[in-house]
Design a protein around this nucleic acid. Sequence first.
DNA 1: CTTGACACAGAACAGACGTTCGAGTATCAT
DNA 2: ATGATACTCGAACGTCTGTTCTGTGTCAAG
Lengths: 224, 224
Amino acid sequence: MMMVRKSKGLGERHQKILDFIASYQREHKHPPSIREIGEDCDISSTSVVNYYLDQLEKSGNIERDRKISRGVRLINSAPVGDLFRVPLYGVIQAGEPIPIPSSDFNAFTAEDSIDVAMSLMPAKEKGRDLFALKVQGESMIDAMVNDGDIVILKPTQDARNGDMVAVWLSDRNETTLKFFFKEKDKYRLQPANPTMKPIYIDKNESLEIKGKVVMVIRKVERYN
Amino acid sequence: MMMVRKSKGLGERHQKILDFIASYQREHKHPPSIREIGEDCDISSTSVVNYYLDQLEKSGNIERDRKISRGVRLINSAPVGDLFRVPLYGVIQAGEPIPIPSSDFNAFTAEDSIDVAMSLMPAKEKGRDLFALKVQGESMIDAMVNDGDIVILKPTQDARNGDMVAVWLSDRNETTLKFFFKEKDKYRLQPANPTMKPIYIDKNESLEIKGKVVMVIRKVERYN
DNA sequence: CTTGACACAGAACAGACGTTCGAGTATCAT
DNA sequence: ATGATACTCGAACGTCTGTTCTGTGTCAAG
């Protein structure tokens, strides 16, 4: 009773092994051992598993770290890894100060967190100190940011011209997101929406830059 | 010369171990062994690594599969995997029709692709048929979408009330993103920006729904 | 029928790996 | 001083794990 491989490509058993590696990895966060693969796929000998693994490696479906325990990994399928976890620190809204992480920064204090793919992150901003805020209310619409959006910020006190910053205008008792420009004797805060006009802040007025916006994410659910 | 743990929390060595596990996992797609951790962190004895690993487990930073090779995993930080690859099919701009994937849909035809964390995806939209477009021009600002933004769409011809849709208005020769509402004898296309007024389309006018927007991603680089 | 490629089993080996234990050192409060 | 606590080392043990070798049954080509 022999199992024939129908196609030139992957046989039933190859597929089952591939599936098992994927699901095992998902569940245990580490690859299975050869014997575990064999047990799941009803293969009684480790040499047979090894036999299939060799084939899967040659056909480019997996990669192996020889001699290393559990050194199997899928390559072309599930793009594994490279997530970036950003702590969600609360909400940002017009009338409230911005909650920025304290110096005894602890990512685990965050109630929740946002996962972002590394590949989406602007190159420079991959430090560990980013944090996220959820926008509440419609006060940021001139920054092209709507209620429910998630903004990812990099905490900083000083901004360069052209940076989008989250600022607290204590004179106006207002939090806002704007593009920042330093001019002769004042600051220009330019809305992201090109049809709207900038606001100007005298240098003697207080302007607290709380952070630099690096990313905005909007899940479009329903309008109502 | 002893290393004192200053705070009650994580010491320098704990952090180094955590970082090493993360970077090793990123690079090798499987966790490091105890001896590999020791080597990287200048710990000469496996028992010391074990000692720290026990502490990290108690403090809830890692999880361990006892007796199993490389059975260490970070729990708070980035969960490996769970990325969603969305093909980037081109640009969307006011004067041009929307490039939607043809039926001989092939993800590899896409010039580029966007990785999105599963956890960011609206629950219902995890089908494999999503695609992404890059916004060109400032014509979508009334949808709170700016030049350079990436919109992720689900191809569909019919929309439910409240869905944000990408439509092609052939009478006006225009592509736009709006919230969709079907009313008595006309369609109402509501801008996402609440300060802007809706446009109405008679049912006899042609209105081609090309897709439903499920997500908007904006990388904030520079204003100029 | 012989030959050889293929799929598979089982056993044995060597090295990798987690675990445990005994012992040593430094710091600090008592 | 004394003990408690925190940290470190080295070695030994047993199991986990990848590798390799021998052997068996099937099937198709020559």
